[in-house]
């Protein structure tokens, strides 16, 4: 299981990569492995404001459908359009090509509530 350093992790198995005031969000390698083959990802429209802990979309895998919970608050500035045609990117490249949304962070202070890679690894028992 891959859990890169430098990202922030939530207990709902999402990650955030912070660059300036933009946070890129996706699901972890552990999460994609548990879900199995992803067949559909439903994402919000750009411009939508999302609060921390709120559902920003759904992910449908062969086994089950799950909500995607935002680890931080902010306004959606970009979504990953490629996932519509190729949802398998979430399985193949959860931290790069499989990213989901980019948010303009409303409160960078929220990041301190999230886990570092080591703590996340411990949580999922790796």
């Amino acid at each position: 299981m891959d859990t890169p350093d430098g990202l922030k992790y939530s207990k709902d198995h999402e990650w955030v990569r912070v660059e300036g005031d933009i946070g890129t969000i996706g699901i972890t390698d552990f999460a994609q492995g548990e879900l199995g083959d992803v067949v559909y990802v439903e994402l919000p429209e750009a411009g939508k404001t999302i609060s921390k802990g709120e559902s920003f979309g759904t992910i449908e895998a062969v086994k089950a459908v799950s909500e995607l919970y935002s680890p931080v608050s902010g306004e959606v500035v970009e979504i990953n359009d490629k996932l519509e045609g190729d949802p398998a990117l979430v399985n193949q490249s959860p931290y790069d090509d499989g990213w989901m949304v980019k948010l303009k962070l409303a409160d960078p202070g929220e990041l301190s509530d999230l886990m570092e890679a080591a703590a996340y690894k411990e949580m999922v028992g790796e």
């Binding site: 199995g36 083959d37 992803v38 067949v39 559909y40 062969v62 949802p87 398998a88």
Partner: peptide, 8 residues
């Protein structure tokens, strides 16, 4: 089977 292909 390719389960993703079967579903989509």
């Amino acid at each position: 089977l390719d389960e993703r292909k079967a579903a989509t």
